[in-house]
Write a protein that binds this DNA or RNA. Structure first.
Lengths: 127, 127
DNA sequence: ATGTAAAGTGATAATTGTTATCAGTTTTGG
DNA sequence: CCAAAACTGATAACAATTATCACTTTACAT
């Protein structure tokens, strides 16, 4: 994989964002910063970085995919009210890979956990 | 929700299938059995049944959604070789909801776990 | 430095899974 | 049996993502 200026700014934009942005969102941010980048380039590079493990692709949330520069093993929570995505630490499911491999005999290369519910902020607002 | 013949055969087709079919797959099976059903009807009814909890929608696998008539809480494993989807029992992640709620203060309404890897059958073939 | 092959880009067309629309049909309860 | 609500098939529309392609950059051997 060769170096590319575009890939670099895409990664930086991803890493600087506290949120877990979608491809479109990153594209909009870069457009505002008057970069002449193409949406296709954003998709291309996010996918490329995801498939080589440099970033993480979060699928199965709504309709769009989101990306995460945090490659530590962790999970995600999406608020059904505000749509915000939160990180959940892996300790909530200890030894889940070992247990599943032992039980099934399958080889597990990766796993994803997504929680749906209402976040604290939205719970406070509800009252 | 009114009765409909189409919904009934869609549910039967889903329940009779060991696999976790997609909407398209169910549509093909019904077409072969010379039903004049429409693809839109298949989608409509799968989604309707999913949202009332009669069946389960499995999202975030590849690009298409899959459906499961097994509504017991359980997880899924998708084989990266053959694409087959297997059920994983919930015991691999005990108390995951309670732990996550305690840790975050969020309210969790649902959660999904998807494993990716190689199933036993494909592992045997590899040798 | 320079030439060349491989990799990357922007612009946009194409694809794909899914949903919306709508005129006509079926179901339901009084 | 009748009206209102729900449902259907056919197909258009949609939205996210990917493919295409002519052109530009990058890497690196000479």
């Amino acid at each position: 994989m060769n170096y590319s200026k575009q890939r670099e700014i895409i990664y930086k934009t991803l890493a600087d964002n506290v949120v877990h942005p979608s491809a479109e969102y990153i594209y909009e941010i870069l457009k505002e910063a008057d970069s002449k980048i193409s949406l296709a380039t954003v998709y291309r590079n996010l996918n490329k970085m995801a498939s080589c493990g440099h970033i993480k692709k979060i699928e199965g949330l709504e309709d769009r995919a989101h990306f995460d520069h945090n490659t530590f093993e962790h999970y995600h929570f999406i608020c059904q009210k505000c749509g915000k995505i939160y990180d959940i630490e892996k300790e909530v499911a200890p030894e889940i890979v070992k247990k599943t491999q032992d039980k099934t005999g399958f080889t597990i290369n990766s796993h994803d956990i997504v929680f749906h519910g209402i976040c604290l902020e939205c719970k406070k607002k509800e009252r």
